[in-house]
Every structure is written in C-alpha cells, then in structure tokens.
C-alpha cells in the first residue's frame, strides 16, 4: 500500500495534471470499479432475506452507485474525447447459494477492499489539484471509511468468533497480495506481447499488406 501511495504521489504530477485524457480514463476506471462494488453487493444480496440486513446492504450499494455515477460524470467533463470504457467480465466474489460461509468470505473481502479503496482515494485527494475530481475523491473516501466499519460489523455478526473473523481478513489480504503480484506479471507480459506483436505486424505488413489491401479494395460489394 505504501508503494502504491508513493506511485500515486509520483505519477499524479507527471501524468495526471498534464494529460487530460489520462485523468478522464483514470476517473472512469474508478467509476467502473465502484460500479463493480455495487454489483458484487447486489449479487450477494440475492441470498439475503432479512429486511434489516437488506436495508443496510442496499444503503451501501446506493453509496457505491453514487460514487460510480460521480466518477463517471467527472470523467466526462475532463477531456475533449470520451475516455475508453473497459467492460471486464464480472467475476462474483460471492457465489450464489454458498450460504453463511460464503457471505462471511464476501464480507471479509469487501472489508479489505474498502480499506484499500480508502487509501487510494486519500492519496489521490492529497495529490491532485483543486477541482471537481478532488471533491469527489474527498467525499468518496469518507463514505469508504464508513464502509470499512459496516463490512466489519456484518463480518462480526456472521462470524462471532473474533479470531476466526480476523483470520478471514488475513486470508483475503494474502490473496490480494498474490493478485497484485499476478497483475504485475500480467503487465510485464503485456509489454512483451506488445513488442512482439509490433514486430510481427511490421513483418506481416511488409509481406501480406499488399494482398490484404487488394482483397479489401477489390471487394466492390
């Protein structure tokens, strides 16, 4: 997390403030991440019948939905061109029908996720200049702090044994650390792939570009 904060503090002055398109894309990504949180909550909610719990979780989903809308709105006001809108496949953290055990795992995952998001929003709110984006980061980070408490409270209700609840949180932290490592490897792989494909494109273009062009132009209809 410290490394991520340092990267944000270093990267924001270099890229964020100078390139509007980078700002827009990043803000929209935050919007998409918040939307995914909302979706994960509503997906898990399908298995919750108690009205009081549903009300609390719906309120949480409503906050995430609000954050998603705000990040999306601000992202569209930053740059002349619309930012790219990635639509990754949904991977539910809670699988429908997995009962209290599954819901406890989901609550632990959500708790760790909220802590991480709070840290990120805090770093961005401190790193970027004044403007709409900063106020959205500031407002959202306060909500995320509330979510940290809410998800922990739900986890404690589902798993009354504190040591077991802590162990669930630790397991999620280890899993997320592993995910970060995998993402790092994936990024390196993507850089390699880009280099190899660029070379392949230039070679294939020299060899087959002309026949391909003829195929396209020769096709009258």
């Amino acid at each position: 997390m410290l490394l991520r904060r340092a990267m944000i503090r270093l990267g924001v002055p270099l890229l964020w403030r100078r390139i509007a398109q980078v700002q827009a894309a990043r803000l929209l990504r935050f919007g998409i991440t918040e939307k995914d949180s909302e979706w994960q909550i509503l997906h898990a909610l399908d298995d919750v019948d108690d009205p009081a719990t549903r009300a609390r979780v719906l309120q949480h989903a409503l906050e995430e939905s609000h954050h998603a809308a705000e990040f999306t709105r601000v992202s569209l006001n930053v740059a002349e061109r619309l930012p790219p809108k990635p639509l990754p496949p949904r991977a539910p953290i809670y699988e429908t029908g997995s009962g209290v055990e599954g819901l406890a795992g989901f609550a632990a995952y959500a708790n760790v996720g909220e802590v991480d998001v709070f840290e990120q929003f805090d770093a961005y709110a401190a790193g970027i200049g004044p403007g709409e984006a900063r106020s959205v980061f500031r407002e959202s980070k306060l909500d995320e702090l509330g979510h940290v408490g809410l998800t922990r409270a739900i986890l404690d209700e589902l798993v009354p044994d504190k040591r077991r609840a802590d162990w669930l949180v630790t397991k999620v932290r280890l899993r997320r650390a592993w995910d970060v490592w995998l993402r790092f490897g994936k990024t390196l792989g993507e850089i390699n792939t880009t280099l190899v494909l660029t070379a392949l494109y230039l070679l294939a273009g020299l060899l087959f570009g002309w026949p391909a062009w003829r195929r396209l132009v020769g096709e009258k209809r």
């Binding site: 993507e190 792939t193 273009g205 087959f208 570009g209 195929r215 396209l216």
Partner: peptide
Amino acid sequence: VLTGTLGQGFPLMVPAFVRSMSAWI
C-alpha cells in the same frame, strides 16, 4: 481482422493490430 489491420493504413495501424491480436490470443 488480420486482413483489415494489415490492408488498411499500414504501417499506422500498429495499435489496432496489437489490440486485436492481444484480444484474439
């Protein structure tokens, strides 16, 4: 996809080719 990326705008279509082939692979 191969014909479209190689036959239109070579060599300017590097990003389109890389995006397409990455998605296919």
